[in-house]
Each structure stands twice: as C-alpha cells, then as structure tokens.
Amino acid sequence: MRAYSRPTEFNWWLTNRTYFFFVVRELTSVLIAAYMVFLLVLLRRLAAGPEAYAAYLRFLGSPGMLLFHLAALAAALYHSITWFRLAPMAITLRVRGRRVPGATVVAANYAAWLVVSLVVAWIVLRS
C-alpha cells in the first residue's frame, strides 16, 4: 500500500478564523517580549544614574517609542482577552459538586485583572 501524505500548505493559518486568531495571538508574544526587554533597559538606565534616566525618558517621548508602546499595549490586550476567552478550558472548578460555568471563570479572570490594575495604578499614582 502506498499511502499519500498531503503537505501542510503554507497558508494553513488563513483557512480558518480560529487558526488566524491563534497565529496572531502567538505573534503578539513577540511584542510582549520586546516590552519586557524595554523594562529591563529602563531598569539599567535607572541604575545608571539620574542623568542617564532623564535622557532615556526624553528618548521615550519620541514618536517611534510612542508607537511601540501603543503597539505593545494592543498586543497585550489582544493576548489577554483571547487567553481569558480560553480560560474555562484549563480551569474547571467545582463548588459543592457542581462545575462552575465557563462564563464565571472568564469573569473571575477579568476581575483579577481589574484588581491587579487598580493596585498598580494606586502604587504609581500615589506619589
């Protein structure tokens, strides 16, 4: 018997909406990783003294960096929202023998996000 193996087409991720959203979600990780690198650089500049830090802050005001931040924010939002939508698959909670519905799990994720954001906002805006 000579079985025929069909090659995976290069454009497989364009053939189905879920595949497309998935590949975009994977790609957003690149921007999120880039943002992590940015945070590390920021820390280094801060450690290098107030002058270096001030110079870096001026550089951050440039349109390119602004664009990068907007793009990173969009990527992070997309990534989080699509992950939250999938959360009920990973988390099955039982309360008194009954499975907690998926919508509740998703809502809990958003609530946790909100709480963390509020805490961060409080820390940042307090000063």
């Binding site: 879920t18 595949y19 998935f22 994977e26 999938l86 698959m89 990973a90």
Partner: peptide, 8 residues
Amino acid sequence: TLVGECTT
C-alpha cells in the same frame, strides 16, 4: 499551544 479547534 491551545488553538482550541479540537474541542470545537
């Protein structure tokens, strides 16, 4: 990597 299509 959790595409999720299997469940669908």
